[in-house]
């Protein structure tokens, strides 16, 4: 009985912030401006399939790179002395305290034609390179913004790996490579799948970053959705349909991934 009373605030919260908005999205997605039921919004998604696939492609690449970078970084942090671990985590999280628009502006000033990087390379008569307004810059922006979401779950499982287990593996003949594949990765499985989800989901619905770093030719599905609500192509019905389709795709990919996930991480 007691537990029921305690769950009331949570249920109210869920209704206000999850159920009602979701209901509205579904309602808008299947209605016309005059409120009649229709599939036309969903069908209209056809025109944006290329953008949708680009979003998925970019976010898959960004997620993989986050994983590749995040694994060694998290492992190194987890093997530091207790006190230093906190400091290093702080450094990882610190950029998240700055507004993400500012962070992305900072990247613009670094990557621009006459930005810091090109000017520095210019000192050695190298460049200038075309670093911005391309797909690479957008993926870089995603990685930069979302890599903490990879490092944190990885760190939290890796810090629980007892050093004596690593020593036991060494004792039984494991070199560095085997320690990674037979001990560290299998024991980090939970963190790897959490990290992949927490990076992939915001990446696939990224907006603004793509517009700022992609130069207008690399817009993602998030940008298109945003412009349906705030831009000049105002059409919340189409925007809702897009959001709904994106959500279904994400859920499908994630459940597929979870199916494989249980065996995949063993290697």
């Amino acid at each position: 009985m007691k537990s029921k009373i305690l769950s009331i605030p949570y249920i109210i919260w869920m209704i206000i912030f999850t159920v009602i908005p979701l209901g509205l999205v579904i309602f808008f997605a299947f209605t016309t401006q005059s409120g009649e039921f229709t599939f036309s919004n969903i069908v209209a998604m056809n025109d944006y399939l290329d953008v949708l696939f680009r979003s998925i492609e970019f976010s898959v690449i960004a997620t993989i790179i986050c994983l590749i970078l995040g694994l060694p970084v998290s492992y190194l942090i987890s093997r530091l002395a207790r006190g230093k671990q906190g400091t290093m985590l702080m450094i990882v999280i610190l950029p998240m305290w700055i507004n993400f628009l500012l962070r992305t502006y900072a990247w613009m000033t670094l990557l621009e034609e006459n930005g810091l990087i090109n000017r520095f390379l210019g000192l050695f008569n190298v460049g200038p390179f075309n670093l911005i307004n391309n797909s690479g810059a957008v993926i870089l922006g995603m990685i930069y913004n979302y890599i903490p979401f990879m490092i944190l779950p990885l760190y939290s499982v890796m810090t629980k790996i007892d050093e004596s287990v690593v020593e036991a593996a060494q004792d039984l003949g494991c070199s560095g490579f085997h320690i990674i594949t037979r001990i560290i990765l299998p024991l980090s499985k939970q963190g790897i799948s959490t990290g992949i989800i927490t990076v992939f989901v915001p990446s696939v619905s990224t907006f603004i970053i793509s517009r700022m770093l992609g130069g207008g030719t690399n817009d993602l599905i998030g940008d298109i959705i945003e412009s349906q609500f705030l831009g000049n192509s105002y059409n919340p019905h189409l925007g809702s349909a897009m959001a709904l389709v994106l959500m279904v795709i994400v859920i499908l990919i994630m459940s597929l991934f979870n199916q494989f996930g249980s065996e995949e991480a063993v290697i």
């Binding site: 004596s164 287990v165 020593e167 036991a168 593996a169 004792d171 039984l172």
Partner: peptide, 16 residues
């Protein structure tokens, strides 16, 4: 350690 012809039974077991 992995090149030594020695094996250890650890005080805290350290099983996988």
């Amino acid at each position: 350690p992995h090149k030594r012809q020695v094996n250890t039974v650890f005080q805290k077991y350290a099983l996988f």
